[in-house]
Design a protein around this nucleic acid. Structure first.
Lengths: 241, 241
DNA sequence: CGTACCGTTGAGGTGAGTCAAAGTAAGTGG
DNA sequence: CCACTTACTTTGACTCACCTCAACGGTACG
């Protein structure tokens, strides 16, 4: 039997995942998932859900990248995170029985599964261990917390940006033949600015500053870091060069 | 039989709580809790746990108030929240199998229960619904998230302070005979500043500004708000007076 | 009556915001 | 393949909210 849900590292509903505590689904549960989940396709800029919507279930991203952000009354957009393949979004609001706090917007072509509310409920009834797994997931999400720590006014835009690079390294950077870190960021200047809580102009200026100091080479959305080791030092707020 | 754990609204381990999904403890489980929890007394300034400590269990505050904050390498302290009676602290790190991200410090005389790691584990084995309850608790904690939203550089210290008042209203404010809101804040200027991500001097100046505009009357840690309705309007970042 | 902590006040500096304009890249249609 | 539109990015000049540093006043406590 062929399931839509195959082996996927850290995919919470994977029936065959061996690396997590979470491989206890029975065939009937997997069948339920397969039958009820809704697969959707999104183009860049498409919304997956909006802030203040009532959650209609939990989304699992199959491919592509999604930004979670919130816009306040004055039009300031704050981005909390970028999520990619095999990550779930929308679960926090779901479990808090809350309206969506954030808007999810695809920034690349994107596929996601929606596990509808009723199906999630049924799964929890069938298998209470699911709560334990999600408890770990939600508790481990330090996104907003780390963001908060970086927003002290004493933390410069420069340090925030470098910190962002460190966080995104695993997903968007590769090491080339010369040992340089090459980032292919899927984010516009505006989106970066919203992640760091500054303006796009500040991003431009910060990038030029880093370039002038030979800490990075910038080409559009490509950022090349010749000396990755210096990055870590530069992310210490009080280290001067 | 008399238990240490009595009826307490929203106390997660309450055996008799009827308002939540969480009243399913059996007598033997309650007995386990009673036997294993450790009650401790703290004076103002005492630490309950330190950042980067290994969690030794979950703490429930019986009485008094506790600040959760983190200090970075340059000595900046960021406070995420203030917690009081019947609230649990330390659970996020616990469930994430992480070191404590924050330091918990008593700001008043304070009693708390520590439910040790082993006891929590036993309780989860006895009663998996506990995971479901904590999932709701952790998911509902919007503390760091709300904090993050207030740290956009476009949000002034003034708006942040007013927002803090609104958040603390339920706990620390009473309405007097004239319909004025009277806050008795248990926080020093420095502690307020750390909550808002500004300096203590800015707090002083902001308070004087509010006083000059007759929006508040300040006496030490007492803040009287003559027109509570104006507060809500003033917390909208883009409303001008 | 010092010591310590907290809070206030002032003067001066600065990082980042704002506004406006020009430059660049990417896609569309003829 | 080129003109045209649209969105994104950069740059510069100016402004300002908040930080920094330093001094001083108040209150509690041994």
């Amino acid at each position: 039997m062929e399931y839509k849900f195959r082996l996927r590292r850290s995919f919470p509903f994977s029936a065959t995942e061996k690396d997590t505590e979470w491989d206890g689904f029975t065939p009937s549960e997997v069948e339920l998932l397969d039958r009820k989940t809704i697969r959707r396709k999104y183009a860049p800029g498409d919304f997956i859900f909006h802030q203040d919507d009532t959650p209609s279930g939990i989304f699992c991203i199959e491919g592509g990248y999604v930004l979670l952000s919130r816009m306040d009354a004055s039009g300031n957009e704050t981005t909390f995170g970028i999520f990619g393949p095999n990550e779930t979004i929308g679960h926090r609001s779901f479990f808090a029985s809350d309206l969506h706090v954030a808007t999810a917007r695809a920034i690349t072509h994107c596929f996601s599964y929606l596990i509808p509310t009723d199906t999630v409920r049924q799964l929890f009834e069938l298998n209470l261990e699911l709560a334990w797994w999600f408890l770990r997931t939600v508790a481990s999400d330090r996104g907003p917390l780390d963001g908060l720590l970086l927003r002290g006014s004493k933390v410069s835009a420069r340090v925030r940006f470098i910190h962002m690079l460190l966080v995104l390294r695993d997903r968007f950077a590769q090491t080339d033949a010369n040992g340089h870190l090459v980032f292919e960021l899927p984010l516009s200047r505006v989106e970066i600015a919203n992640m760091l809580g500054v303006t796009p102009e500040t991003i431009t200026r910060t990038l030029r500053e880093l370039q002038d100091e030979n800490l990075a080479i910038i080409h559009g959305r490509t950022v090349i870091v010749p000396r990755p080791d210096l990055l870590e030092r530069a992310s210490e707020p009080n280290v001067s060069f």
